[in-house]
């Protein structure tokens, strides 16, 4: 089980193209994150857990669905680590599985109002569903 998880972590790192080993756990990403207050695993911790191969823990994390890909973490990281890409890569390992969509499309009409731009709906479906 553990070996498989390490392999998964390696795959996540590969598709993210992030050099997570450059991280020195300064926490600047978490400090900069505008959505951090609602994350169960803050970005710097996310990088740490991934470095230690704990993909299954991260796959269950609410952080996946709070990250907005606003790139504040990536832009301010002093080491060129890109936490947003790592979060995205883990999110993809989840939603690429059959039936693992995060948004129930049938319920969408209830949350969409007439002024909501298409951009919002397309973005959300891209980020949360496959």
């Amino acid at each position: 089980m553990q070996i498989r998880e390490m392999e998964e972590a390696a795959e996540v790192l590969r598709i993210s193209t992030v050099k997570a080993e450059n991280c020195m756990q300064c926490g600047k990403c978490s400090a900069a994150c505008p959505a951090g207050a609602r994350m169960d695993i803050l970005p710097h911790r996310f990088v740490w857990e991934l470095m230690n191969g704990r993909v299954s823990l991260l796959a269950k994390s609410g952080t996946l669905w709070q990250c907005l890909s606003c790139f504040a973490c990536s832009a301010r990281c002093p080491r060129g680590v890109d936490p947003a890409r790592l979060i995205e890569a883990v999110r993809l390992t989840v939603i690429r599985r059959q039936g693992a969509n995060s948004i129930n499309v049938d319920e969408l009409p209830q949350v969409i109002d007439e002024n909501m731009p298409q951009q919002a709906i397309v973005s959300a479906l891209r980020k949360y569903n496959k």
Binding site: A35, A37, W65, C70, M116, A120
Partner: peptide
Amino acid sequence: ECCGGYLTLTDKQATGEM
């Protein structure tokens, strides 16, 4: 700083705070 983007569909409260 971020406006809360697509969270408006899944977590309006979060977007609202942002």
